[in-house]
């Protein structure tokens, strides 16, 4: 199966509290913060690797192409995925600041038409903007089936159709999706038995989490190809559909906490003091 995995780099999510609003309120700045691959995208890379290998025989079954849109430095994020085991990269150079979901989805559509993958496997959302929109938009633009928040994938026909489980508020939804399709993944897709591809024995237990780039992987990644394109060359419309007039931080919380004696006292305070209802 040929899988396209879009990646985005984000500011180190462990230091999200250091994100600041610029002096003029026009932008969110992340100066001094390290870039990391979006965690959900890393999970997508891991899921793609599991789908496209026989882990027992250490064999590869298909091609995994990773792509990203952003400044030249984004190549490093792509190389991290190549070091994990993806085969090839595509970097679409563009100003990160001017990207929003619609622009990204249009660019990905153009890439999909060029690459013709059987599956687009991506993170359910990025942890910076948290929009959770690109996967859905892309599926709509392509007219492809879509499954979001996927926590497990299995296939028994070499990827022609996928049985996926989606975690939703009410429980787990099981769907059968025919490919080509867009699948966005959730955290649990990297649990030990979340991906079954019919080639790796079902009894195989993966290690929890995305795999580490081994030293071999890191060195091999240097030899793997990363095609470079410019956003306009894709021919997709790069005009953002949304504009952000102004950013401001939420007011600081007072942080006070009072203990109440009973439920009645709580209801009373919520009603009369906090005016919650």
């Amino acid at each position: 199966m040929k899988i396209l995995v879009p990646l985005k780099r984000v500011c180190d999510p462990d230091n999200a509290n250091k994100v600041k609003v610029s002096g003029d309120g026009k932008a969110v700045t992340s100066e001094g913060l390290e870039w990391k691959p979006n965690p959900f995208d890393e999970y997508a890379v891991e899921a793609a690797l599991r789908l496209n290998e026989n882990a027992a025989k250490n064999e590869k079954l298909g091609e995994i192409v990773v792509c990203s849109i952003g400044v030249a430095d984004v190549a490093q994020t792509i190389r991290q995925a190549l070091a994990m085991g993806a085969d090839r990269g595509i970097l679409v150079t563009a100003d990160d600041g001017a990207l929003e979901s619609t622009v990204v989805a249009r660019a990905l559509k153009a890439l999909v038409e060029k690459e013709k993958p059987d599956l687009v496997l991506m993170g359910k959302q990025t942890v910076d903007g948290d929009s959770n929109a690109v996967g859905q938009m892309l599926a709509e633009m392509l007219g492809w089936p879509m499954a979001t928040f996927v926590a497990s994938i299995s296939t028994s026909d070499g990827g022609k159709s996928l049985n996926v489980k989606r975690e939703v508020d009410m429980g787990v939804v099981t769907l059968k999706v025919t490919t080509p399709a867009v699948v966005t993944v959730d955290l649990r897709i990297v649990s030990p038995e979340a991906v079954k591809n019919g080639a790796t024995p079902d009894s195989h237990k993966y290690n929890e989490g995305p795999r580490y780039a081994s030293l071999k992987g890191i060195m091999q990644a240097k030899k793997k190809k990363i095609d470079q394109l410019e956003l306009p060359a894709l021919g997709s419309d790069a005009t953002p559909a949304t504009t952000y007039p102004r950013f401001e931080l939420p007011p600081a919380r007072s942080g006070s906490c009072t203990f109440v004696e009973s439920v009645d006292a709580l209801v009373d305070k919520l009603k009369n003091q906090a005016k919650a209802f």
């Binding site: 190389r79 580490y212 780039a213 081994s214 030293l215 060195m219």
Partner: peptide, 17 residues
């Protein structure tokens, strides 16, 4: 360099987890 950063990053993740 980039290799060293990646090596450091992999080892750090491994060490933490």
């Amino acid at each position: 360099d980039e290799d060293q950063q990646q090596i450091q990053d992999t080892m750090r993740k491994f060490a933490n987890k």
